[in-house]
Design a protein around this nucleic acid. Structure first.
Lengths: 136, 136
DNA sequence: AGAGATTTGTCCGTATGTATT
DNA sequence: GAATACATACGGACAAATCTC
C-alpha cells in the first residue's frame, strides 16, 4: 500500500511494490504491467506519478515497452552463446549513448560490456551477453 | 538550438546538446550543470522538460547530483586496481536494484558487473571497476 | 541567528499527438 | 469511428536543503 505520510516518495513506493512483485514472480517475465491509468486508479495517485514509477523500473532494466501496447517484464535471460575472453583482456561496463543503444539494439536500462584486448581494440556487447574466460 | 518542429522530443534535443558539450569538453568532468530553471529559461522550455533532459543524462551515468546543490559532470575514471578473473569465470552486467546501489555506493546510471566463478558463487562490482583476465 | 534567494524533489492536473485495438 | 495506451509538454504548487547576506 501507498503511505502518503511516508518519507519515501509515492512513485518510489509504487516502484518498490512492482519490483517486489517481479522478484516474487507475481509478475513473471513476459507478463504485462497494469496500464498507467490502471495503476493510478488502483493506488489513488496521478497518472504522471504512476508513470514516474514505471520510469524507475525501465531504468533498472526490469520492464520494457511492449512495442504494441503497455509494458512487459523483461526476461533476465542471458543472450546467446558466451563470448570468449582472451588472456590480458580487460572488461568494464557503462550505460550506452543513444547511438550505441540503437546500434546494439538494446532495451532501456541495459548496460554495455566493453572488452579491451591487449592490442588496444575495444569491442562492445550487450550487458545481457555472457563473457567467459577461456577454460584452462 | 531547440527545434520545435523536429520529430525529436524537446527533452531529448536538450539532452543531446548537453551530451555534446560534455563530449567536447565544454562541460568538463567536475563542472556544474546550469540549474533546471536556468536551462528552461535559456531554451524557452518548461522546467519539467529541462528536468527530463537531465534525467536522461543521469541514466546514462554522465552527470550526478552534487550532493549539495545542482548537478556535476561525472568523471569517467576507472575505479581502483583491476580485479583478476580466473579461468572459467563468466561476466555479465545489469543495472543494480536500489539496495545494491546503496551497498555498492553507486551513482545513478552506473551498472553492476557480475562475476560468477566456477564454484557458482557470484560477486558484484561497480561498472567503473576494471576486470582483467589473468595474463597467460 | 535569522532572513531571503536558489535549487532540487515531488506531485498534481491538463492537453495534444500517435499508434493500436 | 471509438476506446485504450503510451509519449510528450506545460503549468502550478509546496517541501526540503543549501547558500548568501
Amino acid at each position: 500500500m501507498i503511505d502518503r505520510r511516508s518519507d519515501r516518495a509515492v512513485y518510489r513506493q509504487l516502484a518498490d511494490i512492482l519490483r517486489d512483485q517481479i522478484a516474487a514472480g507475481t509478475l513473471p517475465p513476459g507478463a504485462g504491467l497494469p496500464s498507467e491509468l490502471r495503476l493510478s486508479q488502483d493506488h489513488g495517485i496521478a497518472r504522471s506519478t504512476a508513470r514516474q514509477a514505471i520510469a524507475v523500473l525501465r531504468s533498472e532494466g526490469l520492464v520494457a515497452p511492449d512495442g504494441r501496447k503497455g509494458y512487459v517484464v523483461r526476461h533476465p535471460e542471458s543472450d546467446g552463446p558466451a563470448i570468449r575472453l582472451k588472456p590480458g583482456d580487460t572488461v568494464t561496463a557503462r550505460m550506452p549513448s543513444p547511438a550505441e543503444q540503437r546500434t546494439h539494439d538494446l532495451d532501456e536500462g541495459v548496460p554495455l560490456l566493453l572488452v579491451r584486448s591487449k592490442d588496444g581494440t575495444t569491442v562492445a556487447y550487450s550487458g545481457d551477453q555472457v563473457l567467459q574466460v577461456g577454460q584452462a
